[in-house]
Design a protein around this nucleic acid. Structure first.
Lengths: 213, 213
DNA sequence: TATCTTGTTACTGTATACATATCGGGTCAA
DNA sequence: TTGACCCGATATGTATACAGTAACAAGATA
């Protein structure tokens, strides 16, 4: 733990929240965490303030920090926001991607078709597909906002990492539709397809959460 | 300076950056600022980290903090992002506003028509108009993202606070068009009108910046 | 019984000393 | 002349002590 302690603590806390080590509503007291991680309060403080800013923690009585209790309605809010922003990004990308970027997108799509049913491999290709579109929009501000919100969804996704075969196929189809619209330069169709795609993944996730609980 | 020192410092720094007291590229050293504001390094540190997070400061050599140099292209990025997010919000509001909220929006629009040419009064009404639409979208996540980006634009706007008469009239017309689309529940028209509205204010701002520089 | 007051406690907020990292310049040897 | 290395200056990063604040509970008072 020689350097970047605060950053490490922040990552550890996020992992802990995502994995359930720190339960929703649980208190995050500076002293307790300092002892747990064998550091002083200072880097803990910094990490907690960042958590608060990123909406993973909130303040309670005595200004203490608590793991934010997320409700199902929060999740819906969040995915709607991601859907709107990512579809805006995709619409821009449809009009702005360079020829090289379009070819790369096609290549990634092809990889997704060819990769078989291994969920982990597909997840990585999925990530690159979305990253490619993000780049193609040529708007760093929107990309940053999108990244921030996506990180928040990660907390919900992490425990339901695997996609079942059915969702994997429908994801492929949706990607193909998005890519087609982008390659045709049709911004508004792209927006619709991307919005539907995010909505589908939301539905899948909530179904998974239901069967878990 | 009895309480919430770090918050005060943060506000002071933002004001300073907006007003030009802290020039772009200028270093923000913890010790220097601590002496200047007669506090210790600790609250300064917190404020600087928040500034960095909010994209007003960046790190330089020796990890030192500097006022971020914003380029014209950054401003364009930023306004495009605000335009996309706010138009998404407006489109949602068109479909979701309660009857009461719609009436309130009409009332605010009417105030804007009636208030005459006092820029300061109109600015306040303008703020409420946009806030009302934000509320109407019923999506806290999008509203928060929007607020964050709007704060960033504030730095550019503050020195060009006043709207001239011509822009004031066109702003009124644009507001009317947006409100009409919302009241008809027409999401896509609302989206277009709001995007145009943000773009217009961007153009006005860049014109003002040109004549200044 | 209701309420106001006051003390205790459990937190974060701030000050300050010390640790650590990084850049730049100067020295010395090849 | 130039490259390697060391050392000092200048930043932030971290540890720790102390200050401040707000919630809660107990006891006094009406």
């Amino acid at each position: 733990m020689s350097e970047r302690t605060a950053q490490n603590i922040y990552d550890l806390l996020i992992d802990g929240i995502a994995s359930g080590t720190f339960a929703p509503g649980e208190q995050l007291a500076e002293v307790t965490l300092a002892e747990r991680f064998h550091v002083s309060r200072t880097p803990i403080r910094e990490a907690l303030h960042r958590l608060e800013q990123a909406n993973f923690a909130e303040r309670g009585p005595r200004r203490a920090f608590f793991v934010r209790k997320m409700q199902a309605s929060d999740l819906q809010d969040l995915f709607e926001a991601v859907g709107e922003i990512e579809s805006a990004i995709a619409a821009l990308a449809a009009r702005r991607m360079t020829e090289i970027q379009r070819r790369q997108l096609q290549a990634i799509l092809e990889e997704g078709r060819a990769c078989g049913d291994d969920a982990q491999t597909y997840a990585e290709i999925n990530r690159r597909f979305h990253a490619q579109i993000n780049q193609g929009a040529h708007n760093a501000t929107l990309s940053a906002s999108h990244a921030e919100l996506t990180l928040r969804t990660q907390v919900w996704r992490s425990r339901n990492f695997a996609l079942d075969g059915r969702r994997l196929d429908s994801s492929r189809r949706e990607h193909a539709a998005i890519a087609e619209a982008i390659l045709q330069g049709d911004g508004e169709t792209t927006r619709l397809k991307m919005r539907e795609h995010v909505a589908s993944s939301f539905i899948t996730l909530t179904d998974l959460l239901k069967t878990d609980g």
